[in-house]
């Protein structure tokens, strides 16, 4: 049975178990986010996706990414109060991650030209906003190399025992989901260095572009995500080979 609710005075239908954010996005209503990824479990850490929700007599400011839709809910995504609280949370994040373009842009959009706050005392990974997207992505892929460590104002992202982790395969997925791009990754022609380890790169048999790391391939074969005789051709080369085959048939 569908749930009927209102977002910015627009009547919309949603399924039970859906969250406000996904329903709004489907309607083309955009809500800013920093810690959300549709393929990963929700966390609700950045507190940027704020909306105002009225449910019966209860009215509250809450986060859209992790709030379940409910019958009769009235959601407002762009009130002055919502913008004010988003701006304050971005001002806090701006003190933590002054050089992160995503934070800076969003902050500027909300009128936060600079932060009135000092940089936090504990900030071992500069510009990290502790959104745990990296941790969630790494776990989702079955590697579980990264951890959220400590708590409170000492929370940080790191590797167990602060040394290179056996579980890390150097896939770089953590960086690709990181909204602040604050994870260090260095590549040479043959290697990739990330989280204190250097990995050999597997290159495309056809064009020579890097496809993945050796460790990543070994992990994928071990977990049967890839066949044992997986051929290391990059997607681009696979596509062009396919289109060449197609062309040879047509012409």
């Amino acid at each position: 049975m569908s749930i009927r609710l209102w977002i910015d005075d627009r009547e919309v239908l949603a399924e039970p178990g859906e969250r406000i954010l996904e329903v709004a996005q489907r309607q083309g209503i955009s809500i800013p986010t920093l810690c959300h990824h549709p393929a990963l479990p929700v966390l609700g850490a950045c507190r940027v996706c704020l909306v105002e929700v009225q449910q019966g007599k209860r009215r509250e400011i809450t986060t859209a990414c992790n709030t379940l839709v409910q019958e009769g809910m009235r959601v407002a995504t762009d009130t002055a109060e919502v913008r004010g609280h988003r701006a304050m949370n971005l001002e806090l994040l701006r003190a933590r991650a002054p050089e992160a373009p995503a934070v800076r842009e969003l902050a500027t959009q909300l009128g936060v030209a600079r932060s009135r706050f000092r940089p936090p005392a504990q900030n071992p990974l500069p510009n990290c906003i502790l959104c745990e997207l990296c941790v969630r992505a790494c776990a989702h892929l079955g590697h579980h190399a990264l951890a959220a460590v400590g708590r409170g104002d000492k929370k940080r992202i790191g590797l167990p025992h602060n040394r290179p982790a056996e579980a890390c395969v150097g896939c770089g997925s953590c960086l690709s989901v990181c909204p602040t791009r604050c994870i260090l990754l260095k590549e040479t022609a043959t290697t990739r260095t990330i989280w204190g380890q250097t990995f050999e790169l597997v290159r495309c048999k056809s064009c020579g572009a890097p496809v993945m790391t050796e460790a990543q391939r070994a992990h994928a074969i071990r977990t049967k995500q890839l066949p044992e005789d997986h051929d290391d051709t990059c997607e681009l080369c696979k596509q062009s080979a396919a289109s060449q085959r197609l062309a040879s048939v047509v012409w």
Partner: peptide, 10 residues
């Protein structure tokens, strides 16, 4: 603080 939320932690 558990350290999750920007508003609470920072």
């Amino acid at each position: 603080s558990c350290g999750n939320c920007t508003s609470c932690r920072d």
